[in-house]
């Protein structure tokens, strides 16, 4: 999961140019991914992992790094599986 998000950020958001991000980089705080990039990232997560990301879940706790994004997705998937 982390690998897919890292690849999306590096290839799609950053266009394969410049330094490549890792799963633990704080990409939304250091300016690597800006507001419109966050929108595309959320769209990607929703499509790739087949879940809806409500606006109130788009917080720094869930989106600080790709690792925290993946943890959020797993939590949502587990929650969906148990309901």
């Amino acid at each position: 999961m982390e690998h897919a998000i890292v690849r999306f950020v590096n290839e799609e958001l950053l266009g394969g140019n410049g330094p490549r991000v890792t799963a633990d980089d704080e990409i939304v705080l250091d300016g690597t991914v800006d507001s419109l990039g966050v929108t595309r990232l959320v769209d990607f997560i929703e499509t790739e992992f087949k879940l809806a990301v409500p606006a109130q879940d788009v917080t720094i706790d869930n989106f600080r790094t790709i690792t925290t994004m993946a943890a959020y997705v797993r939590t949502r998937q587990e929650s969906a599986a148990t309901t």
Binding site: T39, Q56, D57, V58, I60
Partner: peptide
Amino acid sequence: LGPEGAGASIFTN
């Protein structure tokens, strides 16, 4: 309205 720190996403929505 919504959680702390979710204001930008609520605004975008």
